[in-house]
Design a protein around this nucleic acid. Sequence first.
DNA 1: TATTGTTATACTCTATAACTATA
DNA 2: TATAGTTATAGAGTATAACAATA
Lengths: 171, 171
Amino acid sequence: MAARGLYEELARQLSAVGVVKREMARELPGDCPPASVGVLMLLHKHGEMRISRLTELLAIDMSVTSRHVTHVAERGWIERHPDPQDGRSRLLRLSEGGEQLLQELSRRTAETLERQLREWSDEDVARLATLLQRLRDSFGDGRARLPQQGAGAAVEPPGPPERPTAKPRPD
Amino acid sequence: MAARGLYEELARQLSAVGVVKREMARELPGDCPPASVGVLMLLHKHGEMRISRLTELLAIDMSVTSRHVTHVAERGWIERHPDPQDGRSRLLRLSEGGEQLLQELSRRTAETLERQLREWSDEDVARLATLLQRLRDSFGDGRARLPQQGAGAAVEPPGPPERPTAKPRPD
DNA sequence: TATTGTTATACTCTATAACTATA
DNA sequence: TATAGTTATAGAGTATAACAATA
C-alpha cells in the first residue's frame, strides 16, 4: 500500500491526461472523432463482434456504443451482418475502407507520438503503456459495472462546512 | 525512437483512461465535478493566482477556466480579490471551506485508489505518476498552444480510399 | 490598440430512461 | 419475462467567437 501523497499525485496526473488526448485528437479528420477511432481499433484488434461485446471493451454504456457504431457505419467504415446466433444482434466488422482508414490513422497517431516523445526511450514508452493497461485492469476488476444503486447523489461528503451543499440550483 | 507498434499501443491505452476517470468521478459529491477539483487542487498546490495562470496550468481555453472558476466561487470554495497589479484581473485563492473540502476530497480519492490499486507497489504507483507527468511535459513543450491556424478542418487524410469523405450529412 | 476575462453557442462524450424486437 | 439494441434527453467538458473593461 502506497503513501497517501503518492495516490494524490497519481490522481492529479490522471486528470491531466486530457491535454494529451485533445492534442492527439487534433490530428484526426473532422469526420472521425476519437470515439470512432476507438471502435475501429477494437474491431481491428479483436475482429468481428456484437455491440454488447464492444460495450464491454469500451467500458461505456451500450447506448453510447450504439451511437458510435452508427456513426462509423454511416460512413462505411464497418459492416453489420445478421448474427446467426441471435436475431436481436448484428455482427460488426471492419470494412475494406475502414481497414485502410485505420491504417492511415494509426500511422498518423504514431507520427504524432514519435514527434512529441522524441526524447523517450523505447522502454519508457512501453512502460507507460503497460502501466496504463494495468491501471485499467485494476479498476475494471472487482466490481466491473455494478448496476448503479444511486450513483447520482453519490457519497455526499461528511463534514466540510461552509458549503451550500448541492442546492437544486434554479438555473 | 520507439517502434510504431509501441506508439499505437500507447495511444490505445491513453484513450482508455476515461474509464478510470469516470470511476473516480463517481466518488465526488454531485456538486463538485472533476473540473472543480482540478481548480481547487491547483490553487492549493500553487497558491493565489489569476485566471490566466490557471488556464496555463489546466491547459484549456480561458473561457472554460472562467466557467469552472465561477462554479467554485459560487459555492464559496474560493475567494476573488482585486489584483493590485492589474485592474482587469482578480486573484483567486482557496477559501477556508475550500481547503476543508479539498482535504476531504483528497482523502477520498486516495482511498479509492488505495482500494483499486491494492496490489500495486509504491514504486509502480510513483512510476506511473511520473511517466504521466513527463508525458504531459513532452506534449506541452515544443509548441505549447500555437494560435490555431486552421485546426477545425484539420489535417485531412491523404489517401485512404472508399471513404465517403465527410459528406455534409443531411440529417 | 492589445490584453484579461466573460458570455453565447456549438460539438463531443457519456449516462439514464423509455421503447422495440427477439429470446 | 428477460435481453440486445436504439433513441430521446440531459449534463459535463471543451472550443470558437463576440464582447466588456482595463492597460
